[in-house]
Design a protein around this nucleic acid. Structure first.
Lengths: 148, 148
DNA sequence: TGTTGGATGTTATACTATATCAATTGTGCT
DNA sequence: AGCACAATTGATATAGTATAACATCCAACA
């Protein structure tokens, strides 16, 4: 992500935080910037290390976790629990509503891509699932499928 | 899972291990039995604790991890990385080939179900993905989708 | 100006997972 | 039987991930 895109994204992020009633503090911005520049998922500790490498005032992993929680709550960051990693949303400024996110992860090289045009098939599948009686909270559902 | 089903499953497991060229040792069997009886995903440490509660000779978490690795390698157990948990394959004795597994996880109550009839839509989607140039190992792919 | 709530600092600790080497067990072979 | 070899498990240490709990700081607002 180049400098211009980054600036644009930061502006969007600012608006998104304001809308959600949260503050886009300097550290939150810096954490997001690192993730955006990384262009790949980072663990909280990798992020912390990178932060302390490039920023003047240091940060603790604890704070990074809190900031990531916040950024995730406003849909600027995705948490990939299966990887223990976090990544900046690939299409922050596409006006994506984020009702449905989708990722593909290679279990050999650990490459991750976020699918921007979430397939209608998946949407239909989720709709199907919502009918199943066994789930009490159909709006907080994760689907995992893997080939091997 | 009742006693009769369990015995049947254990027989299947035995065959599966033999076919794969591995031994179905007593501890491996005991670990599998606990998972089968639990009827839900367990963490390695929960499993260890349970093991030491109901079995006469104790086990260490390290061994449990190794045994789970083995059981996963012969498709008797699934590892749910996003949950840091392991679960017995729901349809061990269905003759499932396990080229494609699929789970639904509720992020609120953490309930997990394994889909036995993996949707054709998902299969088609994976087939699509296999064409994408950005993945070097298309046969080791995980798809994650979540609604929120 | 005081105070109040959100954000961050700080320390401690729980939980998850793997590395490493030693001991044991089983299996085939002579 | 006795030996050699490989697979399994024991045992200890340590890395890596995540949260709890309390203190401090700071900005917004009455």
């Amino acid at each position: 992500m180049n400098q211009q895109q980054l600036k644009k994204t930061i502006r969007f992020a600012n608006i998104k935080c304001a809308t959600a009633g949260g503050k886009f503090t300097e550290k939150r911005q810096q954490v997001l910037e690192i993730l955006l520049k990384a262009n790949k998922p980072l663990s909280a500790y990798e992020l912390t290390e990178q932060f302390n490498k490039v920023m003047s005032v240091p940060i603790l992993a604890m704070s990074v976790y809190r900031i990531l929680d916040f950024l995730e709550s406003v849909s600027l960051v995705h948490r990939l629990k299966s990887e223990n990693k976090f990544m900046a949303c690939t299409h922050v400024n596409d006006g994506c509503s984020h009702q449905l996110s989708m990722f593909l992860i290679c279990s050999k090289c650990n490459k991750v891509i976020e699918m921007s045009d979430v397939d209608d098939k998946i949407k239909a599948l989720f709709a199907q699932v919502h009918i199943l009686p066994s789930f009490d909270h159909p709006m907080a559902l994760t689907l995992i499928a893997y080939s091997h």
